[in-house]
């Protein structure tokens, strides 16, 4: 079967690729574009390790077909830091030891950023429910939730300061 040609935007860069009709966005990111920061933990949208932003919406990359990407914009973990400056969430995850093995971390960071973009002042419960689609087997979530709340506080502080 002929491959599908797709022209899209990934992390702000114009990208073209060929993919099989049944290949997912996650397959394309990892196997075609070598952006391996997004992880495959289940392939069925249950673990959130492949969380990415598609046109500003949080999705599991394993549930989106590569062939659907024409003309759309994808943001992955690889684009979260601003040059050499880590995003506050990335920094807070390190400060709080909010990762152990770290395989769920890219997906959780992408999902947490999507939350803070929408809701700069989430409660602990809101953080927990928002991240309920991102499985972590190592940490018990305690330090993850603390890191997200702390990052949110710092980001609000920065905004206030800027005003």
């Amino acid at each position: 079967m002929a491959k599908v040609h797709v022209a899209t935007t990934i992390n702000g860069d114009a990208v073209e690729f060929l993919c099989e009709a049944d290949e997912t966005l996650l397959d394309v990111l990892r196997d075609e574009l070598h952006l391996t920061g997004s992880k495959e933990g289940c392939g069925s949208g249950d673990c959130g390790a492949c969380s990415v932003m598609l046109d500003g919406r949080l999705v599991c990359a394993c549930l989106v077909l590569g062939a659907e990407l024409g003309g759309r914009a994808v943001e992955t973990i690889e684009n979260m830091a601003d040059g050499e400056v880590l995003h506050p969430l990335q920094r807070k995850f390190l400060e709080h030891a909010a990762l152990q093995c770290g395989v769920c971390t890219p997906g959780i960071l992408v999902a947490a950023k999507a939350l803070l973009d929408k809701n700069p002042e989430p409660s602990e419960t809101e953080v927990r429910y928002w991240l309920a689609g991102n499985l972590c087997r190592c940490t018990g979530y305690d330090k993850i939730v603390r890191a997200v709340l702390d990052a949110a506080g710092e980001m609000r502080g920065e905004l206030t300061h800027a005003e």
């Binding site: 391996t36 880590l86 390190l94």
Partner: peptide
């Protein structure tokens, strides 16, 4: 409680796991 030496790789997606 210092920062872990492999930390930045793991929050940026750079760390190479088995399938990477």
């Amino acid at each position: 409680r210092p920062l872990r030496p492999d930390g930045v790789d793991k929050v940026t997606g750079r760390a190479k796991f088995g399938a990477d």
